[in-house]
Design a protein around this nucleic acid. Structure first.
Length: 257
DNA sequence: GTTGAGCGTT
């Protein structure tokens, strides 16, 4: 929902889509709007985001009303450094529904199979299988996967270490006869391990597994009223003010503007 | 908190 007020694609029939590549992951539509609006009438800006994390995927789509304006934006903003990174502005080749687009204009509504290769069923666009499949991440970073793998491996190794330390049952040591001294050393080592590891871990790791996208259950949504304005003034509650005073208009601590 | 080829949503 990174467009101007409407829900979904407004009207791509009379618009010309530009693909903005190489944008930073922190760049938002609000940041791109003033840049592209300088060279023409920007109809809509859309930045694909990850549905799990909500982060930008690193590219954006800007739709102009006229092709000449879009061309001018490509000529002007292509290679422009935005947020410390050189972006790439070019006409979109494919539409939101995989239409063939020439110069940002939809040439063909859909890749007609000529009534021959209609074996596949492109009906399912987004489903659990989409994210369950490992080929869905063609647009996302591979390094991120490596990071997740490393982190998972680290956790697995930690688990293995703990499990192994617990596997050393005292019965086994005492079974070998030479036990007292080793028992003390073992206990010392066990204490050492316990000291190294956090004293108390999450008893229920399932808490992390929150497939529900209901982030911020507290109901606090600071930047939700304005999308294209840099006015993040969430005057939620006074930092040290109590709700009993409701909102005392004391100018002691003005908002950070 | 991280990353970097590519083509998109209520």
């Amino acid at each position: 929902m990174s467009h101007f007020g409407k829900s979904g694609p407004p009207d791509i029939s009379d618009t010309y889509s530009l693909l903005i590549l190489n944008v930073t992951f922190r760049t938002t539509a609000e940041d791109l709007f003033p840049l592209f609006d300088r060279y023409g009438k920007v109809v809509d800006i859309f930045i694909p985001r990850d549905r799990r994390t909500g982060d930008s995927r690193g590219f954006a789509f800007v739709r102009y009303k006229y092709a000449e304006e879009a061309q001018r934006a490509v000529d002007r903003l292509d290679g422009r450094v935005v947020d410390g990174r050189e972006i790439t502005v070019q006409f979109a080749k494919y539409g939101p529904h995989a239409e063939r687009i020439d110069k940002g204009r939809i040439v063909e509504s859909f890749p007609r199979t000529r009534g021959r290769l209609r074996s596949r069923s492109p009906r399912r666009r987004y489903s659990d299988d989409y994210y369950r499949d490992r080929d869905y991440r063609r647009s996302r970073s591979r390094s991120r996967d490596r990071y997740e793998r490393d982190r998972y491996r680290g956790r697995e190794r930690d688990y293995y270490r703990q499990n192994r330390s617990r596997s050393v049952s005292p019965d086994y040591d005492r079974g070998h006869g030479r036990g007292r001294n080793d028992d003390k050393q073992r206990r010392t080592r066990s204490q050492s391990i316990e000291s190294a590891s956090p004293p108390r871990r999450s008893p229920s790791p399932r808490s992390s597994l929150s497939p529900c996208r209901t982030h911020s259950p507290g109901g606090v949504s600071p930047d939700r009223h304005s999308r294209y304005e840099r006015s993040p003034t969430p005057r939620s509650v006074s930092p040290r003010g109590h709700p009993t005073d409701s909102r005392s208009p004391s100018p002691s601590y003005s908002d950070d503007e």
